[in-house]
Design a binder for these strands. Structure first.
Lengths: 101, 101
DNA sequence: TTGATAGGCAAGCTGCTACTTGCATATGGT
DNA sequence: ACCATATGCAAGTAGCAGCTTGCCTATCAA
C-alpha cells in the first residue's frame, strides 16, 4: 500500500515542507525549480534542489500533493483532503477507538 | 513566549503521542500512570514512564494538553483547539501569505 | 548532434529526538 | 516518623531524518 497514516504527520513535521504547501496554496501546479526559487527568494530557504525534491517525495507519499508529468516538466498539485482526517481524529469526542497507529 | 507554530506539528509527528491524544479523547483527565497503563495494555507500547512523561511535556508545550495538579496527582486534559489552525492554514485558498514558519 | 534545461538516483555526513538509566522530590497513609 | 505512591530532573546512547555531493537520464531547441 502507498502511504500509511503516520506519513501524513511526519510530512507536516518539517517547516520547509509546510512552506512548500503554502506556496502551492498560493499558486498550484508549480515545478520543482519554481518551488526552489520561491522558497529561496520569499522565505530565505537555502536548501539545494535535491533537498526540495526529497521534500516533495515525502509530501507525495503522504498524499498531500499529486504530480503530473508533461514533457520535461513535472507539475505539483496540492491535495488537502488528507488534512481533514487530522481534526476528525480528535475533534469528535468519545467514540470507540479504531486501530490507528 | 511559550510554544511556537512548529511545536504543534512536531508534537503530532510521534505515533506514541498520537496514541496519548487518542486515550485522552476517550477518557479525559488521566494521570501519568493511568496513561502508561492504557498504552501498555491496549496498544503494546513498551516505553518507560519517563518516556511517556517526556511525551506529555511535548504535548503540553504544543498546547494540546493542559495539566491540573491536585495533591500528588497531575491530571492531563485535552485541548484540541490548536488542531483547527492546521486545516485553516491550507484549506482556504489563495489568501496573502503571512509569516508562518 | 550539440548544448541547455528539468529532473532522478544513491551514498555519506550530521544533528536531533526518542528512549533509557539513575537519582531526587513531594504527597498521603499508617 | 516511616514507607509507598506519583512525579520530576538530568546525563548518556542509538537511530533516523534532513542535507549535501556527485553523477546520471530525459526532453527540447538551435
Amino acid at each position: 500500500m502507498v502511504g500509511d497514516v503516520g506519513d501524513l504527520y511526519q510530512a507536516l513535521a518539517d517547516p520547509t515542507r509546510r512552506l512548500i504547501l503554502d506556496e502551492l496554496t498560493e499558486r498550484d501546479g508549480q515545478t520543482l525549480f519554481e518551488i526552489c526559487g520561491r522558497l529561496a527568494t520569499k522565505h530565505q530557504v537555502g536548501s539545494s534542489r535535491q533537498a526540495i525534491s526529497q521534500h516533495l517525495d515525502v509530501l507525495e507519499a503522504a498524499g498531500l500533493i499529486v504530480t503530473r508529468r508533461q514533457g520535461r516538466y513535472k507539475f505539483h498539485h496540492l491535495d488537502t483532503r488528507p488534512l481533514r482526517s487530522i481534526t476528525e481524529r480528535w475533534l469528535r469526542s468519545a467514540e470507540p477507538t479504531q486501530e490507528n497507529p
